[in-house]
């Protein structure tokens, strides 16, 4: 990894946006990389949308607040509208399929729709949709070692939820598989 990777995670509050970012940040830190995790904590969060910017870098990170991203992981329409233009050419937009009505129109970026909610419901736990997306993202952009993601999961998930770790791991793997299958069809 020679270049910093700049990611925006965006959606509604409660979809696990902030934890997705934390897991990647934690895993990257375990690997000795520089990381920053910048949440939206302001009125926009109270209004329903939440986002966080994560930067993973081999070198010291300058600004933790940026306006152009290598990847956008999007879980609702307002976030797609807001961040689609902010993705750098050649970047990646990965979104939750059923949450988006108007698909991204850009053709200079890679676009991937993941039916994460539908798949999570099949696992009887719609809360792990974020982990399915995260798994898919890591398949597309292997920024960190998968084993370290599992370590990070233990750190980020509060102890009272540790019994859900196997389910989360299952969701991550499922996401990876969906993204691999997508690769085949494209």
């Amino acid at each position: 990894m020679q270049q910093p990777h700049e990611i925006i995670f965006a959606g509604f509050g409660g979809q696990g946006i902030l934890s997705m970012g934390q897991i990647i940040a934690y895993a990257a830190m375990i690997e000795g990389k520089e990381v920053s995790w910048m949440p939206s904590y302001g009125p926009e969060m109270r209004g329903g949308t939440a986002n966080c910017i994560v930067i993973v870098s081999p070198v010291r990170i300058s600004s933790p607040i940026i306006t152009r991203f290598d990847s956008a992981i999007v879980l609702n329409q307002p976030s797609l509208d807001k961040f689609e233009p902010a993705v750098k050419p050649g970047g990646l937009i990965l979104y939750e399929k059923s949450s988006i009505i108007k698909e991204p129109s850009r053709n200079d970026v890679e676009v991937l729709a993941i039916p994460a909610l539908e798949e999570a419901q099949k696992l009887n736990k719609k809360q792990v949709a974020n982990m399915i997306l995260l798994g898919a993202f890591l398949e597309k952009r292997p920024l960190v070692n998968y084993d370290n993601i599992l370590k990070a999961l233990k750190k980020v998930l509060p102890e009272r939820h540790h019994h859900l770790i196997p389910l989360n791991e299952q969701a991550l793997l499922l996401g990876k598989q969906i993204a691999t299958a997508e690769n085949m069809t494209v």
């Binding site: 934390q22 940040a25 830190m29 520089e34 990381v35 920053s36 995790w37 910048m38 949440p39 904590y41 990170i61 933790p64 607040i65």
Partner: peptide, 10 residues
Amino acid sequence: DGALGQMMEK
């Protein structure tokens, strides 16, 4: 400021 208070880093 609020950003440095809220952000996470190593």
